[in-house]
């Protein structure tokens, strides 16, 4: 890893990261602020929501209306979606650009002619990517934790809360490695941001479709969202080893493949 490149990349992406942090924190705390009102009117709200077709509720991630009553259930349903979808979009947009941007912005000729190996470039950028994803998740987790602490009406499992955050982090990292991998496959320098955002949304759509339609529930397994257990309100909620292996395994394979491909990639500007 090269420190000069690492710090320059950190500075280059800092503004975007800060903006994302602010938006996500506001969305999370804003949503959690209505929890109190929700509890006060829970019978009315649940009664009203029970009129909504089951499929539509499933689409929103609500499998059981009573889950909303627990603060973690409310947080999971309303807020994880922000970090699951928005966080993954952040990760894939950043990762698909972090190396490719040098090519389509024609700055690669400056970067690649410095006394750096391809490995140093790759790992410096990878470190920036992972650190950005981690920092966004950290801020989102803190915003969520503080919000939950403020609005809670009884004790909740801190372990379950942070397990949920870990799942989200792993999901975001996975999408980060998907974006990185795809960007390295691009032969002629052009942005693939829209395509990558589309990938996140398509996977999310597949996941929700598999939840609302029993006949196609199996297709949910192709979506990384399927492997995030959001039922944090259930007793004994913890990280599932297989799901953990899935996230870490695929992320490592994609990171390794990206590394190998980048070592031999022809860089055009």
């Amino acid at each position: 890893m090269n420190r000069n490149l690492f710090f320059k990349e950190m500075r280059r992406n800092a503004l975007s990261l800060i903006l994302w942090m602010i938006v996500v924190s506001l969305l999370i705390s804003g949503t959690m602020s209505i929890y109190g009102t929700f509890l006060e009117n829970q019978s009315k709200v649940i009664g009203m929501m029970s009129l909504i077709p089951k499929g539509a509720l499933q689409f929103k991630g609500i499998s059981n209306l009573n889950n909303l009553v627990s603060v973690l259930g409310f947080y999971a349903v309303n807020n994880v979606i922000y970090m699951m979808v928005l966080g993954s979009i952040f990760a894939i947009v950043l990762s698909s650009n972090i190396l490719l941007k040098e090519e389509y912005n024609k700055t690669a000729e400056y970067l690649l002619t410095r006394p750096l190996t391809r490995s140093e470039i790759y790992f410096s950028k990878l470190a920036v990517l992972f650190l950005h994803i981690f920092l966004l998740n950290l801020v989102a987790a803190l915003a969520g934790f503080i919000s939950v602490e403020i609005v809670k009406t009884g004790p909740f499992s801190i372990k379950a809360f942070f397990t949920l955050c870990t799942y989200t982090l792993l999901l975001n990292i996975l999408f980060g490695t998907i974006g990185l991998f795809l960007s390295i496959l691009v032969k002629r320098a052009k942005p693939i941001t829209t395509f990558c955002i589309g990938i996140v949304l398509v996977f999310y759509f597949i996941y929700t479709l598999s939840k609302i339609t029993d006949s196609v529930s199996a297709i949910g397994y192709v979506s990384p969202f399927k492997y995030v257990n959001v039922e944090a309100f259930r007793p004994g909620y913890a990280l599932d080893l297989w799901h953990l292996a899935y996230f870490i395994g695929i992320s490592m394979v994609l990171t390794g493949l990206s590394y190998r491909l980048y070592q031999r990639k022809d860089i055009y500007t």
Binding site: R12, N105, K106, A108, Y110, P115, L116, T117, T269
Partner: peptide
Amino acid sequence: ETKKIKSQVGYIPSDANAYSS
């Protein structure tokens, strides 16, 4: 040995943009 080489080579590209920001 690209790293060693580049520490002793200067390069002016034909059509490159420095980081515009």
